[in-house]
Every structure is written in C-alpha cells, then in structure tokens.
Amino acid sequence: MSGSSEREKRKAERLRAESATDAGERRTRLMQLAAGAAFLAVAVVLVLIVVNSSSSGSGGDTKLEGAAEVNQRLAGIPQEGMVLGDPKAPVEVVEFADLQCPYCKAFTEEALPPIIENQVKNGEVKLAFHNFTIIGEQSLPAGAAALAAGAQRRGWNFVELFYRNQGAEASGYADDAFLEAVAKGAGIKDLGKWNAERDKFTAEVEETTAEAERLGFNGTPSIAIRGPKTDGLEAIETPGSTGDLEAAIEAAE
C-alpha cells in the first residue's frame, strides 16, 4: 500500500517537473516571438517615417512647382473672396473656369499676366474667378477648395498654383493631398480653417456653374465683363490673346 503511494508521489513529482520544463521552453519560444514582433514593428515604423520624411513636407506626398513665383507675383494686390484687384475698379472681368481645364490654365498663364501687371495693379480692372465645373468629379471639391482659400484672401494664389501644377485632365490627381499641398503652397495661414470650411463652398461652386449656363456658356474658359458701358455682366467671346482682352476691357470702360 505504502509502495503504491510512493510510486504515485514520484509520478506526480515527475509530471510537475516535466510541466515546468515544458512551460520554460514554451515561455522561451513566446519571448523569442515577442522580441521578433517588436523588432519588426520598430523596423516598419522607422521605414514609414523615413519614406514619409523624404517626400514633400506639405499636403501629403505632392511636390509643387512655382509657389514662390506665384505668391511673389500676386503680393500686394488686394484680394477679396475670388476677386483680384481693387474692389472699386470700374471694370470687372469674370473668368468662368474649371481648375482641371488645360485651356483655362493656358488662358490664365498666357493672357492674364500682363492685365494683372498693368490694369489690375493700377486699379482699372478687377478679375473674378468663378467656378464652371465641367471636367470631372474632382472639379467640384477643387473649386470649393479655391473658394475656401479665397475666404483667406489667397484665392488667386490657389488658382494660379493649381494651374501651375495641373495634371492630365480628369486623371484623378486633384485629390485631397494635392489640394492640401496647393493650399499650403498658396500661403494660406489657417490650414485647419481652410480644411474645415471647404465643403461649405460646394453650393457656391454649383451656383456659379449654373450662372455660367444661364449666360449661355458651354465651355471653359468663358469670359464675361462688367463695366460702365456694359449692360450688367455681359458674356464675350473668349479672348484668344491679351490684346483681345484689352480691347474688350477698353470697350467696357
């Protein structure tokens, strides 16, 4: 009887010892796995940070060109909403455009600079940018983003910088990261406010698009002009050059 009890006791001790050995081995394996996972996590985080720090600093991964040049050229010219120039200027030229439209880019970059440099700066003309969204679904948020920039008196900086970095038509480049980069490059002071407000301007983009349709426009850019000699805001044929636009301004004065 006592012999059998002794055997059971030894068996129990052996089982306990084996369990302790198994537990030790299991624990070692767990710690090795945990250390491996921790090492992997540190490596992944470091790679993510290095990859992101080597991309552009603003608005995600988008690199922009011409921000300094655009901001320097527009510096000192009054801006109110999407209007560039003296609010009391007798002639107003309204450009109905889609930010994704390559012809609008060409018009703004080729025909407008001499007008801005002369008639706008000397207070004869003010330029207004009205969204006329016809290209693609990103045109609406892009237009609203421009208006939100306008609320911080950086609307034209936004528009010109957008054009300067315009991608292939409706190719999907005008995403949030691109808009953020343009906003930052345009020198918007309160990016948080810009970001929070831009959705609110969607209705205004839709309104100006409807306004363009009321004026009979069916393509971008389309131009309307208002001056002492016009009957309110009058649609004109899109000027092919600075000279054509100067002639239209002269006729309206």
Binding site: G60, D176, E180, N195
Partner: peptide, 22 residues
C-alpha cells in the same frame, strides 16, 4: 458622416487631420 471629430477649445486640428491624406 462626412464630418471631423470635434476638437475641444475650438481647435481646428481634428478637421485638418481628418481631411488629410493620412
């Protein structure tokens, strides 16, 4: 719902982060 979480003390940081590409 298309909104950003509301930051305390009127900060706009939540909207900026929520709308960022990250």
């Amino acid at each position: 719902g298309g909104d950003a979480p509301t930051c305390l003390a009127g900060s706009s940081g939540c909207a900026t982060v929520a709308k960022s590409s990250y």
